[in-house]
Computed example of a mutant assay.
Amino acid sequence: MIRYLTSIGLSAVLLLAIVWSIISNFHKEENGGEALNEVNQPVIKEKEIHTSVGQVEDNQGDAGSFYVDIDESVLYSHDHEHMEQQPEVSALNIPAPDFELMTLDGKTLKLSDYLGKKILINFWATWCPPCTEEMPILQNYYEQHAEDNNAVILAVNLTDQEGGIEPIRKFANDFHLTMPILLDKKGQVSINYEILTLPTSMIVNEEGFLVEQIIGPVTEEMLEEKLGVK
């Protein structure tokens, strides 16, 4: 008799456990399907943008189909704007620091030798692409208009940042440059003129005052406006 009652009791407990399990799962599904998600589906969470690697990923670690190299896109945008923008012109009114430099053909020139003329001092280097672009424009003005307009162009090369004199000589020959090319071998003149960007040009008036700074390659129209044309 006792064994029979025990068997009935165990059966009842098992039946209650099954019923409770069914009711519990039913309530979980009604409350948002948590049990289903936990067993059969990944929980989709908010996506995160990892700018360090430029990928869009969810926080399960799976890479998405969209890829952007953040660093390169920013650099490209910046370079594009730099190439498209007009040269930056700033007005000045300070005495031009005098200097004495050797030219590519071995002469020695001083800035003060040209007092009474309009002077454009162009700071440049052979490895600077915008310098290469503007050099024919400077040479053309020097040949065609400088003498008639009491003007001179001094091309000051940042020789301390070059690989010797020969690249400069080759550059001058390739572009058939006849304007004075001055060699800033120690970099002191570029320091005195606070040159941070190439090319940079300085306009000095007839009285020896710096009147304008031009950051970026000059154009033919700018030369005619700043130095004159007849």
Rank of each mutant, 00 (worst) to 15 (best):
I195L: 12
S73Y: 15
A35R: 02
E34A: 08
F209Y: 06
E34V: 05
G54R: 11
P87I: 04
Y142R: 00
K226F: 15
M102Y: 03
E166Y: 03
V211Q: 05
W20H: 03
G228Y: 08
W127D: 10
K118R: 02
G187D: 06
G9K: 15
E225V: 07
E133M: 07
G208H: 03
G187A: 05
S7I: 15
S21A: 06
D174Q: 10
F175P: 06
A96I: 13
F66I: 13
E134I: 00
L15H: 03
E220F: 08
Q161H: 08
I23S: 09
G216I: 06
E48W: 10
E34M: 08
I44V: 07
Q188E: 14
H50R: 12
L75M: 15
N205T: 14
S77G: 13
K107N: 14
V53I: 11
L227F: 11
G116C: 12
I8H: 10
D160N: 07
K118Q: 00
K28S: 11
I119W: 07
E88N: 03
S73M: 15
L92M: 09
L227R: 00
N192M: 14
E166K: 00
I119E: 03
T126C: 08
I137S: 03
V189Q: 08
L14E: 09
N149C: 10
K170W: 01
M83Y: 11
D69F: 11
H145D: 01
Q85R: 13
N122D: 12
T6E: 12
Y4D: 10
E162R: 00
E38M: 01
M179I: 11
N59S: 11
L92T: 13
Q213T: 12
E34C: 01
A12Q: 09
F171H: 06
E48V: 14
F123V: 14
L14H: 04
N59G: 04
I168P: 00
L182I: 01
V89Q: 10
Q86Y: 06
Q161T: 11
E166H: 00
M102F: 03
H27E: 10
W127Y: 07
T51N: 05
I23C: 03
P42H: 01
L120P: 05
G106C: 13
D62L: 15
G187V: 10
E207L: 02
E162D: 11
I44P: 00
K170Q: 09
R169Q: 05
V19D: 13
V229I: 09
C131V: 00
H27L: 13
A172S: 14
R3S: 13
Q139N: 04
I121N: 01
E34T: 03
V43A: 00
I70K: 14
V189P: 06
I94T: 15
L177N: 09
E206V: 14
T6D: 11
I2E: 04
V68N: 07
A151V: 12
K45C: 04
L115V: 09
P129I: 02
E220Y: 10
S112H: 08
W124N: 09
A91K: 09
A63K: 15
L138A: 04
G164Q: 07
P95D: 13
L158Q: 02
H82G: 05
Y193I: 13
V218C: 06
S21P: 08
I18M: 05
E206D: 15
V43T: 07
A35L: 06
S24C: 01
W124R: 01
